[in-house]
Amino acid sequence: MDNSIKAFRIISVLEAISFLVLLLIAMPLKYIWDMPEMVQIVGMAHGILFVLYVIGAYWMYEKLNWSFKTLIIVVICSVLPLGPFYADNKYLPKNKAA
């Protein structure tokens, strides 16, 4: 598998996990137990990963000759909690070395 696709896949998974940790762990800690520290840490990591995901999506758009519609769908997936997993499964080439 191409290294750029592998890199985007890793960023995609990390972005999705960071979003889930932010929503399911950090936000309840902040708003239920008044512990905002986790949101600051996870929020910063998620923000960086989100930007890398969007840049990577554009990179894949050019590399894989996606249509503009596919690019928009993949970018929209970045704001859905499990969206990057869907985008990975639907739009990235499968690993042929199994």
Rank of each mutant, 00 (worst) to 15 (best):
M1D: 05
M1S: 08
D2E: 09
N3I: 15
N3W: 11
S4K: 08
S4H: 03
S4Y: 02
K6Q: 08
K6L: 14
A7F: 12
A7K: 12
A7D: 05
A7Y: 08
A7S: 12
F8G: 06
F8W: 13
F8Y: 14
R9A: 14
R9E: 07
I10E: 04
I10K: 12
L14F: 12
L14D: 05
E15S: 12
A16C: 15
A16W: 03
A16L: 08
I17T: 11
I17M: 08
S18D: 07
S18W: 01
F19H: 05
F19P: 00
F19D: 00
L20D: 03
V21A: 14
L22Q: 14
L23A: 10
L24S: 06
I25A: 09
A26I: 13
A26H: 12
A26E: 11
P28M: 10
K30L: 08
K30M: 08
K30C: 05
Y31W: 10
Y31K: 13
Y31R: 14
I32Y: 03
I32L: 09
W33N: 11
W33C: 01
M35H: 05
E37P: 00
M38C: 00
Q40T: 07
V42S: 00
V42T: 07
G43Y: 03
G43T: 10
G47E: 06
I48T: 11
I48E: 02
L49V: 09
L49I: 09
F50P: 00
F50E: 01
V51Y: 00
V51E: 01
L52S: 06
L52G: 01
L52K: 05
V54A: 07
V54Y: 00
I55C: 06
I55Y: 08
I55P: 01
G56L: 09
G56F: 02
G56D: 04
Y58K: 04
W59D: 06
W59V: 02
W59K: 10
M60S: 10
Y61F: 13
E62H: 08
K63I: 02
K63Q: 11
L64V: 03
N65F: 01
N65D: 11
N65M: 05
W66L: 10
S67C: 03
S67F: 00
F68G: 07
K69F: 06
K69W: 06
T70L: 04
T70Y: 03
T70Q: 14
T70I: 07
L71T: 03
L71D: 00
I72W: 06
I72R: 10
I73F: 04
V74I: 14
V75T: 12
V75C: 06
V75H: 02
I76L: 15
I76A: 15
V79S: 08
L80R: 07
L82K: 07
G83Y: 10
G83V: 10
G83R: 09
P84Q: 08
P84N: 15
F85T: 13
F85S: 08
Y86G: 05
A87F: 10
A87M: 13
A87S: 15
D88H: 09
D88F: 11
N89K: 13
K90N: 10
K90E: 15
Y91M: 07
Y91D: 08
L92Y: 05
L92W: 06
K94L: 14
N95F: 09
A97N: 14
A98I: 14
A98V: 13
